[in-house]
Amino acid sequence: MSDNNNIVLSLKNVTKKFGDLTVLDNMSLDIHEHEIVVLCGPSGGGKSTLLRSINGLEKINSGEIYYRGELVTNKNIKSVRSHIGMVFQSFNLFDNLTVRDNLTIAPIKILKKTKAEAVEKAQSYLDTFGIGDKMDHYPHQLSGGQKQRVAIVRSMMMEPDVMLFDEPTSALDPEMIKEVLDAIRRLAEMGMTMVIVTHEIGFAREVSSRMLFLENAKIRVDASTEDFFTNTEDERLKQFLSVILKH
């Protein structure tokens, strides 16, 4: 783990403010290849902002973010983004495009794939996630769980190096949560590096290799999943877990 060569993402002293409110306070963090890191903590703790800062959806006020050792700047953000997949809480599928076009537009435009290649790949991913028959549907014709799986496939189509999940199940009805979590499990089996913000703490425990507890704009606890749940001495985390595990 200490090998620097396999660090995918690295944050150094990152600070982000919204007006007077500090959301990320001098935060540093390394994410290694094949790690599955889950961010948890009370809302407003900066979890989503952290993810959104990594691929430049939020501009940070100070600090540095490195991707594979390379400083992320305004100039290279576009090429960095093409290696980082992001899945949103509200899916953000392109409403006016079919599933086919949602999945193939970026590979064709950015990765310069042929249409046939892209469609073939899309089909195989859709099959993997159990929605192989949805190729010609429009987003509004899909259920929430199906939409989120399409969104996951859309990111996977870019052959990302790392995937970011911003509360991927929060907007879903309970019966659809499992299908999305199963899809993420499949990515875990493939060895995908992932950073996940989620409130599904049982799922987090099962799938993650490392857990972070964020509170008040700081990383309060950073531990292996096992230590996080069994050996923690942090009072605030204990409190948080006891509340969340009761549900």
Binding site: L57, K78, I84, G85, M86, N92, F94, M158
Partner: peptide
């Protein structure tokens, strides 16, 4: 929706592609 722009950004779609293929039809 702002999310449409954000999704396009994370896929690193060029601005004009986003504008003409996704935003303007909507």
């Amino acid at each position: 929706d702002k999310g449409q722009w954000e999704a396009a950004k994370t896929l690193s779609l060029p601005f004009l592609t986003t504008l003409f293929r996704i935003v303007i039809p909507q």
